[in-house]
Design a protein around this nucleic acid. Structure first.
Lengths: 340, 340
DNA sequence: TTTATTTACGAAACCGGTTTCGTACAGGAC
DNA sequence: GTCCTGTACGAAACCGGTTTCGTAAATAAA
């Protein structure tokens, strides 16, 4: 590590201008206390010397950092990639910096990240919780410190703050309904988690649709995915072979769709004739899969954007606190050939 | 914005323990000057009061922030998503924080981001430059301030620092070679940029392969993509209709592959019979496209990881400076049905 | 002309850590 | 007993901004 070049400080500006430090500081922040002429002189020198205020000195004094922390389970998923874009779009516009952390679906890791935030490193937090997360003490503690936090997509219902979600229940209902209408009498539900709010709601929507179609729910039709991709895959193979053809499958998250394509290929099952597939997915390539995948596409960009917008509003508006509310941005179903 | 809860400070610890601030500070950093007994008392209280040192105070004094800035052109591309994972893996291990910025392929935006870094906000920088970037004064200025920077994938050759790249020339050569071997006598090159180093190298590899196969290069076979997706697409349609069947296409970046699938569908051209396609791509779904896409897959995770590892080494090792060298991590070609 | 304001600026405290330097005291060497 | 050394700690400077408060001079009000 080389020693840094010493940056130009506000003190140097003051000395060169024959002004006090406080005057320079106020001039830079365009305070009404300072005359136009002085402001001009200061800004000229700022320009000339390429002065960049030390953000850490400023953050220390003002107790805010213009930085938001974003906690994601992972970033491979195209949902989160798009969400980052949405977040960045408002951060950029509002002059915020974005710190990114990945929990890798681990509660422990998520907890560490959130605990670090208690230090005041970030002004506010956006989070989509880890698959493993089943409690929320870490988040409560953060909120007690008055650090605003908004959830997006993977929320914790019990925490009283703003949550940006999509219509998981309705989307899953619609998806299941679609499969049934297409003639798949038996519908498998590929479950990502048994505890995550989104998973539960999607499962409920699925169940309700079965009920409305007088199909009795069987827990045997819910296939749970763990973190062990290999084991999951062999479970999937076993399940598929045990069933007769003509079943529908609802993949509750994007990452479960491709394994199904693979399994069908391996078992020589035809999509959509033998297996109908619909998946929650934001894959751009969905339309070009073999066959094209029917998807429930979430408004990922908009969700990220909305989450960031709420957070920034909470940070900047004195009389605005994050209400305990759900903002629902609906998903859309795009029917393609994987479901007839 | 609500006023923050006042955090526990090192001063409070000192008062409660009847010690001086400096003693507490040293105890926390496990200084040899402090007795084991005192350290114990201090750490007990730290634990009890849940003391979190203010990172900004620390950064101000020590002049480093344990933060690295990552500048990406975009994050929709799965290459960059995977690269982020690689970067995060070393950041997490080494205790660094990751600030993410998107240039959206704009030079101006990239310049602003880099200029902000002159403030000392980050200890070091990882960057994959924007498509528009054709000069490097902004980066030179940063390097003059002794802020280490390493490029990955989209590098600027003229800047004397470490660059993590893949074997663009060879990969494009191999890809073209493959198309020709498969019987495609005419090969289109879908170009993403005329200035980006990776694009130039890939084009060179393509040309060399043509040359080695005694096919004369025609600039008419290089199709340039702008930022105007619609116009690009209609250009692509026009080009494809103007050619006879049996042409090979090398898409030099991932985002150019799907439009080709779409165009072929629209023009009722069959892949691979009428059009053979190979693309630089890190899409997980490549194997399940219709037909499965032959790809040049870049080691995105490893590249991000290597870039971060070099940067951290430069930050932590006193006698290590980032050499002006290229670290090449080879890509692999995965042959699938889109090229026979 | 006197008093009240306003304008424009400076001194100094402050944010919360880190680091330098000084020192009291204990123990060992001579 | 004197000198030296090492141990364990504290006072204070420092990082580079922001903010409060005070004040001299200029202007307005009475």
């Amino acid at each position: 590590m080389k020693e840094k070049v010493t940056n130009v400080t506000i003190k140097m500006l003051a000395n060169q201008l024959g002004l006090s430090i406080s005057t320079v500081s106020k001039a830079i922040s365009d305070s009404h206390e300072i005359s136009a002429a002085t402001k001009q002189r200061v800004n000229d020198l700022v320009e000339k010397l390429n002065y960049k205020p030390n953000p850490y000195a400023s953050s220390l004094r003002t107790r805010n950092s213009k930085t938001i922390g974003v906690v994601l389970p992972e970033v491979a998923d195209s949902f989160f990639a798009q969400a980052i874009n949405g977040i960045e779009s408002v951060a950029e516009e509002k002059g915020y910096h974005v710190l990114i952390y990945l929990s890798h679906e681990s509660f422990e890791r998520e907890e560490q990240i959130i605990k670090d935030f208690e230090s005041g490193r970030v002004d506010g937090v956006l989070i989509s919780v880890a698959k493993e997360t089943e409690q929320h003490k870490h988040i409560d503690t953060l909120l007690e410190k008055k650090i605003p936090l908004v959830f997006f997509d993977r929320v914790i219902d019990e925490v009283a703050t703003t949550k940006i979600i999509t219509d998981d229940y309705e989307a899953a209902y619609t998806a299941t309904e679609h499969l049934i209408k297409q003639g798949y009498k038996q519908v498998l539900f590929l479950s990502f988690s048994q505890t995550l709010s989104i998973s539960c709601k999607r499962l409920e929507g699925y169940k309700k649709s079965l009920y409305d179609n007088t199909i009795k729910f069987s827990s045997g039709n819910v296939l749970r995915f763990s973190n062990d991709a290999k084991k999951d895959y062999s479970n999937l193979l076993r399940k598929l072979t045990s069933l007769k053809k003509g079943i529908g499958v609802l993949a509750s998250v994007e990452k479960l769709a491709l394994p199904l394509y693979q399994a069908c290929e391996e078992l020589q099952l035809r999509i959509p004739q033998d297996v109908g597939l619909i998946s929650f997915s934001n894959l751009d390539s969905a339309a070009f899969l073999h066959p094209p995948l029917t998807t429930i596409t979430q408004p990922a960009f908009e969700m990220g954007k909305a989450a960031a917008a709420f957070l920034v509003k909470a940070l900047e508006r004195k009389n605005f606190e994050l209400a305990d509310e759900e903002i629902v941005i609906p998903s859309v179903m795009i029917v393609r050939k994987s479901t007839l």
